[in-house]
Amino acid sequence: MTVKTNLMIAAASSLLLATGATAQTTAPAAQRTGAPTTAAPAAAAPGATTAAPQAAGAPAASTAAASTAAATTTIAAALPTLPNRATLTKLVTAAKLQTTLAGPGPYTLFAPSDEAFTRLPAGALDTLLKPESVPTLATIIKYHVVAGALTSEQLKAQITAGGGKATLTTLAGQPLIASLEANGNIALTDTAGIKSFVDTADIKETNGVVHLTNGMSVPKLG
């Protein structure tokens, strides 16, 4: 790992910590479950029977169940199809982790949005994409992956059993702390004490589950 890479990563971590990562520390109004959708739900077809509108923050159990039945591909193959995850897809490829996320697993992936990576200092993302940065990038991506397929309900059960917190051991070998906000959103606190939030949960694939988050998590680097 080059000196420049070290400096850029240190700057990235410092920036996230110093700014409080505004979007990362704001819980979404409602946490969705199942396959991601656009902001407004599609209108029902004429004559179709629909359930009552979902209250803000309430999990859509039926959507999650439908997602389970529809799982036909791996996490690696599904990544390019997920909305606003193009940057993560590119980073997974650069870190040479496609094979891992296409493997039997199972895995739980906390997938940061494209916007989350824009908080890095100018040039930091380009540095991470360089061949010499592969070990550092792999650590960052692995910090978003946990062995085992953990649904939102299982995560909440672990949080409750842990007295309000659950320590998740990531593939990077470093802990990620899961907790619950007052509105029921799952929060993830990284090694720097910065929070990101799950805004769409339980996207189930053949080798695990993906939870979309509104921020990236930063492991200890160096």
Rank of each mutant, 00 (worst) to 15 (best):
T2N: 12
T170M: 09
V209N: 13
T100G: 03
A11G: 06
L97P: 08
V218C: 13
E205Q: 15
A178V: 03
V145L: 09
I203V: 08
A66W: 08
A39L: 11
A192S: 09
A71L: 15
K4Y: 00
K156Y: 01
L15F: 10
I9H: 12
T136V: 14
A70L: 06
Y107C: 00
A23R: 11
T89D: 12
A187F: 02
I9R: 12
N84A: 10
G215E: 14
T191Q: 12
V3M: 01
Q158N: 12
L16V: 03
P28G: 01
K90P: 04
D202S: 07
A29H: 10
K204I: 13
V198C: 02
A157M: 02
S179E: 12
T5G: 02
L101K: 07
S14W: 09
T89A: 08
S67F: 07
A44T: 00
P106T: 05
S133E: 00
T74Q: 14
A21K: 08
V218H: 09
T160L: 07
T37M: 11
I9E: 12
R119W: 01
L168K: 03
G148Y: 04
A192G: 07
P219C: 05
L176S: 15
A182S: 15
A69M: 12
L171V: 05
I186N: 04
L128R: 10
K96R: 12
V92T: 11
A58I: 13
P36N: 04
L180R: 15
L97D: 07
A124M: 02
P112G: 03
V218N: 14
A187S: 14
A51M: 12
T160S: 06
G34M: 09
L137A: 09
P53G: 02
G123W: 10
L155G: 08
P59K: 14
E132P: 14
S196V: 02
G105Q: 08
K130Q: 06
L82I: 07
L91R: 05
T118S: 01
E115V: 09
V209I: 10
L109C: 03
H144V: 06
L88D: 07
S62R: 09
V198Q: 04
A161T: 05
V92L: 07
T213G: 09
S67N: 09
N185R: 11
I177V: 15
A58Y: 10
A71P: 14
A94D: 07
T19E: 08
F110I: 01
E181M: 00
I159N: 07
Y143D: 13
T108I: 05
G193S: 04
T139M: 03
K142C: 13
S13C: 01
L176F: 14
S196Y: 01
